[in-house]
Write a protein that binds this DNA or RNA. Structure first.
Length: 421
DNA sequence: TCTGGGGTCCTAGGACCC
DNA sequence: TCTGGGGTCCTAGGACCC
């Protein structure tokens, strides 16, 4: 096998730059919801010492003084640019897997017979840059884990100009010998600490560790990672997205919420969004859960966190059924006298349409014309600004998130089209 | 004042069955 | 004196990913 991992450089920050060429060479950061903390940063921002996940309020002043520019998250823009990048890549290979909003695995089997793989990598870069304005790097290897490692090398060492080919064993071992084990795909902070204690600090040392020992001390997951590092593919290409097993919609509130009424509004809003996602998956759910919690960073506040589930008699994807369940649940777990900062809705136990075991003793109560109604709502809400909502979702939504620094939706809203004077 | 959101997979342990 | 063995299913929790 030969895989290529195509990875966008500082994806969100690069998206902000696509329509703002003046930001070239300027430190750029993108913030999480409510302008909470840094979730993406350009190379220039890294160079002036900004770190991933840093709370914005702590670095705001010094960052602006150094000439940096910050943006609130603009997911409409990022999703659209992502689609363009993926469409461009699809033209370069017969088989590919969209792995995340900013990464794709390409199957290069066969391509290595017609062209030099490194050359192919540069062609990829050039085409994506030309067609979408997005800078990418390309890592190539015989397994997905090695392709990931190659991408790490391409990011870390500028001499590679963003393309690394690990087809050859000696190249694999050379890079792995200088790659910290924590950078390996599948090794997180907990595993890293554990491995370090055993004296394993580089990717190469992990690759050379006895496989039986790995299986005994850890699990089959790490065993696969080790085999992949040795060049034996254990993780295949997933071309077609699988149906989801759960759907979560949760948000931190723009400001603290104390009354059941407001928290109910927020939860109903998330429930409606979750139901919409469920219908998009063409699935029906049987279990609905609700959770809410206070702000753990406010040590002076009384803390409370709870989650509760409700099992419906019949799987549904009708927003009204889900709203009924979430209303019951939030009433049960809500407690007076607490400052809530976050809540969420979770849907699980999915079924395909009409395929489920119904209860012998409880008569089914199907809502009339449910499908047509939901379809119509989704259609209206999918077209633009005008939204049909349920009364429970509230009107003013004082709890909704705050985004003070958002860029225009250049590619998805007519009013936000770029104007050139 | 102020700290994100959305997923998957694996394992251990308990309940329960014959 | 002495109390088995084998299996499934479900759930919670932990780890990882972007």
């Amino acid at each position: 096998m030969t895989y290529a991992l195509v990875d966008c450089n500082s994806f969100y920050a690069s998206c902000e730059r696509v329509f703002r060429p003046d930001l070239k060479n300027v430190p750029v950061v993108v913030l999480s919801n409510n302008d909470g903390c840094v979730v993406a940063l350009s190379k220039e921002a890294k160079n002036i010492g900004i770190k991933m996940c840093e709370p914005w309020f702590k670095i705001k002043d010094s960052f602006s003084k150094k000439g940096g520019v910050a943006f609130s998250s603009n997911y409409e823009l990022y999703a659209d640019i992502s689609t363009r990048v993926m469409q461009t890549l699809e033209g370069l290979t017969p088989r590919m897997e969209i792995y995340s909003i900013d990464e794709a695995f390409l199957d290069l089997s066969g391509i290595n017979f017609c062209t030099d793989l490194k050359e192919f990598g540069y062609e990829c870069q050039e085409r994506v840059r030309c067609w979408t304005g997005m800078p990418v790097r390309v890592g190539i290897g015989p397994t997905k884990t090695l392709a990931k490692a190659a991408s790490y090398g391409a990011k870390k060492y500028s001499a590679t100009q963003g393309v690394v080919d690990l087809s050859k064993l000696e190249r694999q071992r050379k890079l792995m010998s200088i790659m910290p084990v924590g950078e390996v795909w599948g090794v997180g902070s907990k595993l890293r600490k554990h491995l370090n204690k055993m004296g394993i600090t580089t990717a190469l040392e992990l690759a050379d560790t006895d496989i039986k020992l790995i299986r005994r001390r850890f699990s089959i997951v790490l065993e696969r990672t080790v085999m992949e590092l040795r060049g034996y593919p254990c993780i295949g290409l997933e071309e077609h997205p699988t149906t989801k097993k759960e759907i979560v919609v949760s948000r931190t509130f723009g400001k603290k919420v104390t009354t059941l009424e407001s928290i109910n509004e927020a939860i109903s809003d998330y429930a409606a969004r979750a139901a919409e996602k469920l219908r998009h998956e063409k699935q029906y759910c049987r279990v609905v859960s609700v959770f809410m919690r206070t702000n753990p960073f406010r040590l002076q506040d009384q803390q409370y966190s709870n989650i509760l589930s409700y099992r419906l008699n019949t799987p549904t994807n009708d927003t009204r059924d889900i709203l009924y369940a979430t209303r019951k649940l939030s009433k049960k777990i809500y407690k007076k006298g607490y400052n809530f900062i976050k809540a969420g809705v979770m849907l699980s136990d999915f079924y395909d349409k009409g395929i489920y075991q119904s209860d012998f003793f409880i008569p089914e109560c199907k809502r009339p014309k449910s499908e047509k109604l939901m379809e119509t709502i989704d259609k209206i809400n999918g077209t633009g600004e005008v939204k049909v909502t349920f009364a429970a979702q509230g009107i003013k939504k004082p709890w909704s998130m705050q985004r003070y620094l958002q860029s225009p939706k250049y590619t998805t809203n007519w009013n936000d089209l770029l104007v050139v004077r």
